[in-house]
Amino acid sequence: MRLKERPKWQELLPGCVIDEPGNSVNYKTGDWKTLKPVVDKQKCIRCGTCWIFCPEYAYEEDEYGYFNPNYDYCKGCGICAVECPARCIRMEREEE
């Protein structure tokens, strides 16, 4: 990311324009959560429900068609665990 959080005034583009589309992917929201989703792949039917209902699209599809949570972005809302039709997602306390 080229744009800085605390730039000098000379480093701003006119009108504070941001010319790096979608650069908020560099801002990790993963540390917001107290609970994290854990997927039981034995039960997972790879339907994509967790992915479609995630406000962060924290779920990423792997080469086998499974959706795995990316904990860098997951805020731990738990929608996926409630919505999963196979009931294969459990919210677990973050270890720390």
Binding site: E5, R6, P7, K8, W9, Q10, L12, P14, G15, C16, V17, I18, D19, P21
Partner: peptide
């Protein structure tokens, strides 16, 4: 060539934004 116009200026940025405008 997507750009974002009119972002939120947190206290860390507003002063610099106004200085830039004043210089302009």
């Amino acid at each position: 060539r997507p750009t974002s116009h009119g972002p939120v200026g947190l206290p860390d940025i507003y002063t610099e934004a106004k200085k830039q405008q004043e210089e302009a």
